[in-house]
Design a protein around this nucleic acid. Structure first.
Lengths: 210, 210, 210, 210
DNA sequence: GTCTAATCGAGACGGTACGTCGGGTCTTTGA
DNA sequence: TCAAAGACCCGACGTACCGTCTCGATTAGAC
């Protein structure tokens, strides 16, 4: 039997050069390291990558798109995976602490800020950005919480989506609002602490040692 | 005896026209109603207000500054005050619900988005924006919480600042991240619900050490 | 003895397709019919001829070269030959009138204009253009004049080259300078009329020195 | 009675800077001296004049317009006036010779070529160019011819417009067609010589001393 | 019947200039 | 001094073509 699956026919014409693509992404990341997102221009990226502007516009529709891809491609805010420990709250706290550590790197926070800004001004980009970055983050938290439910440490009726959003929101506010309050481990722990009683399954603590 | 204190001498020259100032703010608000923040230009505002560009730059240093003032001046996100009811959690929930209602008005959310975007790209503006808008919001929450402590409904050791940030963060995330999850009363209530156990003073569960 | 002259060896590889060449020339002529020379691009010609750009550059070095060849190949400004009538001035006038008629066709004048423009901006092309087009035109006039000398109607000491240039120049000026004066039969006749006395051999006005 | 003629009210706003205007024209002329018209760019002119591109586009619609004005303003092909001598043919020859001398300056011929090229590609510019340059030239010839008629040296029924066009055409052809024939005094004289008999009023030479 | 080499369509590539837009400043007249 | 008007310098935008390049596919003669 001969499979008649679509033959993976190459498109006609000169194929896209991956070297060019990588060069552009590199240039974008390099520039993000040295100047403000606002001061970065498509022209500047093209110049640094020694590439025609058209080669950028052919594949990305804007500076924002390009920077988003540069960041995701370069895994600049991918969190290292972590095995569940058995204590959900420790896992949650650990996840949040590691997340904060990533965000504290200047390059990362700068990128996040830039992309959040862009997302506010462009609805389409906002959705794209959420899809590419935040959905994954939320799912990681969901997983921890679901695991906690399985373990009987989390109340099964908890709205895990709300919890995930509250947790991320807490970091967003400290990071983006302009408050002078620190964005650190202590804050991470306090946030988890605040939520603990609201989501923990009260083990029938032995009906009060009366 | 003639006081030599600074005579309330008017500055020389033609005094600043408040009509001009108001006209500019009006023009800015009008434009915010019909086009994206990105598409608004200082030139456009000047044209609509029938004013020279210089008259704008004389009093504001940027589009962002002007829009920020337009919004605060026009009270576009001032929350109506509310008297404490005796039930802190009801107060908290009520505050959050009313806050969400304000943010759901398109004009308001558009302004907040624009200013948040600007704040991400300009550190100075970020601080200014926080000072002008978010500090007040947080203080309102602080007040409610402090009142709750007085009433004995909130644990006195709660870090009220963290609570305020978590609450606001929750709204930020739903509003700004691009998630498709609704930004509504139910969410407001679930957020307060999640925090309740973490901050409520457990009514004297028992004289305990009897 | 074996002649070592270049054996008419075909070059190896796929031979050039004449269909492609004709298709390109056709496309060029078609486009000249519908848009301005300036708006015509190599890319546009390639697209219309369904041909790769390279196939154009392989055989012509520029748009001008291609258009020049399209025009000469398609004989767009070849003048139908005309047998000498016995009256040189009638021949001259006839030649000029027919020449004007050809130049009055819009397609022709458009092509001439385009190529004259190109010729002004590129010295190499100017020479090529002269060689391909104007030299022949001048020679036709030379021939008529030489025939006139033989017939004893033209003074043998006339500088026929100057005459040819004056005749062509007259048409160039009316056609290319932008004057609103008509470029027609009457003008042709007046031009020949003006020159008549200057070049005609005065029939032995008299033995004179009797 | 008070005249109600339009008061020469200045337009509002900052008036156009003549220094800027002259700087732009100077830059254009400078560049014409060192590079080909084709290689000259609006950007290049702006850069050399240390001027924003907009300041060029505000006042000229294209490179061609600007160069035309630079040439006319700088009188680059204005012919020095010449008093009539009494011998029309000498005047005509003199005018043509001086005209050729001007056109032989490289800067001038380069400019004329460029503008003629432009004129072929843009109908509007063609008219503008004719108006600004060639009409005047023709009128100078007309004047000489009319003077000649008054003096009884030129036949009164001569179509002076045709003569002017033939004279100019003769120079156009030599200059623009790409012929290798020289463009010099001799040619000027031969052209006038050719036309002499066609336009001279044959003084009733005393009906032949029979 | 391969093998070799130049052709073909297609379209990406590095460049360069285009003409437009908006920023923020400067220069007028007039109040 | 302020205000309206608008010119000014600047610099980035996104587009259009340039002429070159790199693909897979094709087309012949040479072997």
């Amino acid at each position: 039997m001969t499979t008649t699956t679509i033959p993976p026919r190459r498109a006609p014409g000169r194929p896209r050069s991956d070297a060019t693509r990588q060069g552009i992404l590199d240039a974008a990341v390099d520039l993000m390291a040295t100047q403000s997102y606002r001061d970065i221009t498509v022209e500047g990226i093209a110049a640094r990558a020694k590439v025609g502007k058209q080669s950028i516009y052919r594949w990305w529709s804007s500076k924002a798109d390009l920077v988003l891809e540069a960041y995701t491609e370069r895994s600049l805010y991918r969190l290292p995976a972590h095995l569940p420990s058995g204590d959900v709250f420790a896992d949650l706290e650990g996840n949040l602490v590691r997340y904060f550590m990533v965000l504290q790197q200047e390059m990362v926070s700068k990128g996040v800020r830039s992309l959040v800004a862009e997302a506010q001004l462009d609805e389409t980009f906002r959705a794209k950005f959420y899809e590419a970055v935040w959905r994954k983050r939320c799912e990681a938290v969901h997983e921890i919480l679901r695991h906690g439910i399985t373990l009987g440490q989390i109340r099964p009726d908890v709205d895990i989506e709300t919890v995930a959003h509250v947790i991320h929101g807490a970091s967003w506010y400290r990071m983006l609002s302009g408050t002078s309050r620190p964005f650190d481990d202590g804050y991470a722990r306090r946030v988890v602490g605040l939520l603990r009683d609201g989501i923990a399954l009260r083990t029938p603590v032995a009906p009060a040692a009366t």
